[in-house]
């Protein structure tokens, strides 16, 4: 048994009849960066919710830092695993710094206030995510990219060795997408965080992640180094699209081309296929 996250024969289904995840096994070494990819409905977010304890497996085991996940309380698990979910906006106008400070809630004194140490942790997280400049602004006044950084800051302020992210770049433009991944990579190298990100962006996963877990709607999974798992053949199989692959330096990139894509029509005209 190796790895800070160790998943063995995990199965889960929301109803008793069908399974979303079937017999999944993988492990993430401490300080690793795992991308979880796959088509919609393959159970990526479900798997994330299982690893953070929000759902209970039907069968199989999840081991976090050498202890089974059931042995953690909500509080002790939050000290190991922090989660960044998709776009959550609070209904009240909390400011950036108030939001990030909430990560320290379990450590507040009895009177409900933070210590100096908590404040320093929050300051660190704000600086690392480049959000200190607008710390006093309300979350609602920020752009999606800025808000996503704030939630990453909040997760970092939990000071947990493991960071889980659910599609961290889904609503972001190109600059903010690489911005978020640079930030995660910096947290991986600088702070030794183990990062697991659910993503639709296979190309960014190739550029930034060490390992990939490709989930299919058939309930099967493929796990291994990014370069092995994210191959043209596997991606075509799992996603059911035709892929045109290329290479930038060491890493590959993948471009899906649909029936009516312009280049697709040209390629077909040239080769005479119909």
């Amino acid at each position: 048994m190796s790895g800070i996250i160790h998943v063995q024969n995990l199965s889960f289904g929301y109803t008793t009849k069908s399974l979303v995840l079937k017999d999944i096994s993988f492990s993430v070494p401490s300080g690793g960066f795992l991308a979880i990819a796959g088509p919609n409905g393959a159970g990526k977010s479900t798997l994330l919710n299982l690893i953070c304890g929000a759902l209970t497996p039907r069968s199989g085991t999840i081991i976090i830092d050498a202890a089974p996940i059931e042995s953690y309380s909500t509080r002790t698990l939050a000290a190991k695993v922090a989660v960044v979910r998709q776009e959550s906006v609070p209904i009240f106008g909390f400011s950036v710094v108030e939001t990030v400070l909430m990560a320290r809630t379990p450590y507040f004194g009895t009177a409900g206030f933070e210590s100096q140490a908590d404040r320093e942790i929050v300051q660190d997280a704000l600086e690392l995510t480049d959000t200190a400049g607008f710390a006093s602004r309300p979350l609602t006044s920020l752009s999606s990219g800025e808000r996503q950084r704030v939630f990453i800051a909040r997760a970092l302020a939990q000071n947990s060795p493991i960071l889980l992210l659910d599609e961290p770049t889904s609503f972001l433009d190109l600059k903010h997408q690489v911005g978020i991944y640079d930030l995660l990579k910096a947290a991986q190298f600088g702070k030794g965080k183990t990062i697991v990100a659910v993503t639709h962006d296979i190309n960014l996963a190739c550029q930034y992640c060490d390992q990939a877990l490709l989930l299919g709607t058939d309930g099967l999974s493929r796990h291994g180094p990014v370069s092995e798992v994210l191959s043209t053949e596997q991606i075509e199989n799992v996603f059911g699209v035709e892929i045109f692959a290329g290479r930038i330096g060491q890493e590959g990139f993948f471009m899906p081309l649909g029936k009516l894509a312009k280049d697709r029509a040209r390629i077909e005209a040239k080769t005479g296929n119909s």
Binding site: C52, A79, V83, R85, F94, M102, T105, P106, G112
Partner: peptide
């Protein structure tokens, strides 16, 4: 008042609050 920090976290939704360590 003694559970008010947890109420802050809960206003982000139950799942967020739980992952921040709030019971």
């Amino acid at each position: 008042f003694f559970i008010s920090p947890q109420l802050n976290a809960l206003s982000f939704g139950a799942e967020d609050a739980r992952s921040m360590g709030v019971n």
